[in-house]
Design a binder for these strands. Structure first.
Lengths: 198, 198
DNA sequence: GTATATAGACCGAACGGTTGGTATGTATTA
DNA sequence: TAATACATACCAACCGTTCGGTCTATATAC
């Protein structure tokens, strides 16, 4: 049974993925949780504090993803990555049925970075860490003879990461589902992989 | 001499590139223009109308870009594209000196698409049109023997477009300048081009 | 030429509604 | 009973919008 504090966080997080910070009102958070403002302020100092915790939650979850995916080959790596890097993973299955809205992690990043310098720093760190992980995987793949390319490890890594972000963004523009976005990204990556594999 | 209506639009547009819709207040628009709320409402029905006009302005400007860039080769095309596709082009040179803020076209797109179904449709149209233009250029480049790749025209086109968007977004996360973002995109594209050229 | 009427440009105070937050009270739990 | 969890009423500030007003330029009538 999830406790009250976590319930507030979960629901707030869902809302922050659907609308930007200022659009999500305390009134709405309170209504969606079925609680009261008094209860909200019992657990949290401010709306801002909730938002900060949500942004930090995203960061730590993103870091966790890299801990559990296969590093045996680039091919396995990116397939595994896509299977794990999914916004729906943040929500208990029982809540998914109520959830047909457009999720936008990018807006949350932009705003978090703007509101909290500490988050911005962490975001920069984690994107750099991400790039490094991909570079290592690419380097290994190259050494093992899995891939061959005139592109540097760094540019290949960037190509994978940035194209996925761009594809994700375009999916949001066109109101596609998360599954559609992932399918599009996979197609793109498979295609690129075909280009550089030995 | 720019007239009052355009002055309000220009300044509003700059603000909407720096903050999201709800963060930009009428008070601020009015202060920045040196006018009054009454004057604002003399020209515009609502804050929302101004925002809609800003979003439509972006769309038409984006379409104009494709009209003036070279289509002789993929190499020329993407270099020319980068030279023209620059947020700073929206602002008169005399105003640039006051302008050291982070510009975020993506947030403007997300919000426009959310607030205005008509804008969302146009956005989808223009991204599709964009993709088609790039596909044609890639196809031509392939036919001319400029490039050779196992990737389909569409996937190559997507790779160029989406990687640039992703790179742009990362630049915003790390508070880089527009010039830095473009330089990063060019490096990525040059690298990819090296991979697929004959 | 002068007085009057009109339109447009612009102003700032007031309006009604909403917001995040605070203070106080009540219910629940150990 | 005391501590914790929660509810409700209220607050001040803020928001976008409306409204009555002023100023200036121009047109018209005499």
């Amino acid at each position: 049974m999830v406790n009250t504090r976590e319930r507030i966080l979960n629901i707030s997080f869902q809302l922050f993925l659907q609308k930007n910070y200022k659009e999500v009102t305390l009134k709405e958070i309170v209504e969606k949780t079925g609680m009261s403002k008094g209860a909200f302020y019992h657990y949290f100092e401010s709306k801002e504090q909730v938002f900060l915790e949500c942004t930090n939650f995203v960061i730590s979850s993103a870091m966790d993803v890299y801990k559990k995916i296969s590093k045996n080959s680039l091919l396995e790596f990116y397939h595994d990555f896509l299977n794990h890097n999914n916004l729906e993973m943040f929500f208990p299955a029982s809540e998914n049925k109520d959830f047909h809205y457009q999720l936008n992690i990018f807006s949350l990043f932009f705003e978090g970075a703007k509101l909290f310098p500490s988050f911005q720093e962490k975001l920069v760190e984690i994107t750099q860490m991400e790039l490094n992980v991909w570079k290592e995987i690419v380097q290994l793949a190259r050494q093992k003879g899995e891939i061959k390319s005139v592109m540097s490890d760094e540019q290949i890594a960037k190509m994978f990461l940035y194209s996925a972000d761009g594809a994700g963004m375009h999916s949001i523009f066109s109101k596609g589902s998360i599954q559609q976005a992932q399918s599009s990204i996979l197609q793109l990556w498979d295609s690129f992989y075909e280009e550089i594999k030995c």
